[in-house]
């Protein structure tokens, strides 16, 4: 099958997966302990008021009807109203989401790219002293709990040792007063000085997986016959190493979704440590205040994040490895 068909197939599968996830999430939230209607109502509501809420929100209808109603709303972007803040869920979460994506996206990517590059260097230097010792730093950074690493960095750069960077938040309070729209924040230097430390923490933590896997991947590829053949035909070291990298990156890509998933849990902790107003902080808050509509929405976002990650990896795989996307053809002659 052609590459196009491969992409189409993956897209359809991903969408189906997300739909399946929404069903699971929906059932999960509706069947939580504690009556849903009571949760929606303010505490201290009387039984009649709870009844009214049930009527209003159609909670007496069969589950699949409720689901379809929910799905209908979701498609138009209406995910309900936050119990805690009283504003539409989407309106509430978007700024937080943006803060997290701006932080986590580039950080994970950078960590991954740097980690792969470093791992490739180690793999190509297999057997040398550099290689034996060089694997230690990524291991160190990757296994220290991320929040602890964050605290160390804060201590070093924002507190005790070098008092250069701000200690918390995304932006100083005086700047907040100056801007009208949320996104204007990203244009200030102040924001980026706040950005630096949490960014660095995530990068350091994310080095570990790709470095170790790329290293062993390169070592494996280096022993393959086609690598030997490149050497025998006299191709330059650069060309050979580039080819090795292409091959070796396949396993590294495979774990990208896992790294992304891992990053989510790490993100919550880091946002807490740095008091970063992102989706992680919002999640913690919402759990504590039982703000179910917000929680549902965040869970859905996380699920989409992971499915999207897998999808992108599949597409990249198809681009890099023709064996997957271009099928085998029978011989003719």
């Amino acid at each position: 099958m052609s590459r196009l068909r491969y992409v189409a197939k993956r897209t359809v599968t991903s969408i189906l997966l997300v739909l399946a996830l929404t069903v699971v999430l929906f059932i999960f939230f509706r069947t939580l302990p504690g009556d849903y209607a009571t949760m929606l109502a303010q505490s201290g509501a009387s039984t009649e008021q709870v009844q009214l809420i049930r009527e209003k929100w159609g909670l007496n209808d069969p589950l699949h009807v409720q689901y379809l109603r929910w799905l209908g709303n979701a498609i138009v972007g209406d995910f309900g109203t936050s119990r805690g803040y009283g504003v539409p869920v989407t309106e509430l979460t978007i700024p937080y989401l943006l803060n997290s994506v701006i932080l986590a996206g580039p950080a994970i990517l950078t960590g991954y790219v740097l980690g792969s590059g470093y791992g490739a260097m180690l793999g190509n230097a297999f057997g040398s002293r550099f290689e034996k010792v060089g694997i230690l730093p990524p291991i160190l950074f990757g296994t220290i709990p991320s929040f602890f690493l964050g605290i160390i960095l804060l201590f070093l750069f924002a507190g005790g040792v070098l008092n250069v960077l701000p200690t918390e938040g995304a932006v100083s309070t005086d700047v907040v007063r100056q801007i009208n729209h949320h996104w204007e924040m990203y244009l200030t230097v102040n924001f980026w000085s706040h950005y630096l430390l949490p960014f660095a923490t995530i990068v350091l933590v994310q080095l570990y997986y790709p470095a170790t896997i790329m290293r062993s991947s390169i070592i494996e590829v280096a022993g393959e016959e086609f690598d030997e053949y490149h050497k025998i035909t006299g191709l330059s070291t650069f060309t050979r190493y580039t080819q090795r990298f292409k091959h070796a990156s396949l396993p590294v890509l495979t774990i990208l979704p896992i790294a992304l998933a891992r990053a989510i849990s790490g993100l919550v902790l880091i946002e807490v440590v740095f008091n970063w107003p992102g989706i992680g902080s919002l999640l913690v808050q919402s759990v504590l205040s039982r703000d179910v509509p917000v929680l549902q929405f965040i869970f859905l976002l996380v699920a989409i994040w992971i499915v999207a990650g897998n999808f992108i990896v599949d597409i990249l795989y198809g681009i890099i490895d023709p064996r997957l996307s271009i099928g085998e053809e029978a011989e003719s002659g």
Binding site: I232, T233, P322
Partner: peptide, 27 residues
């Protein structure tokens, strides 16, 4: 040179014409 396991000597991620052009470029 024709290597022993010739069938595995072709790089699966390269078109066979690419192997040729790379050799030509090198030599």
């Amino acid at each position: 040179f024709i290597p022993q396991s010739a069938m595995n000597s072709l790089d699966p991620l390269m078109k066979v014409s690419e192997q040729a052009t790379k050799i030509a470029k090198e030599h």
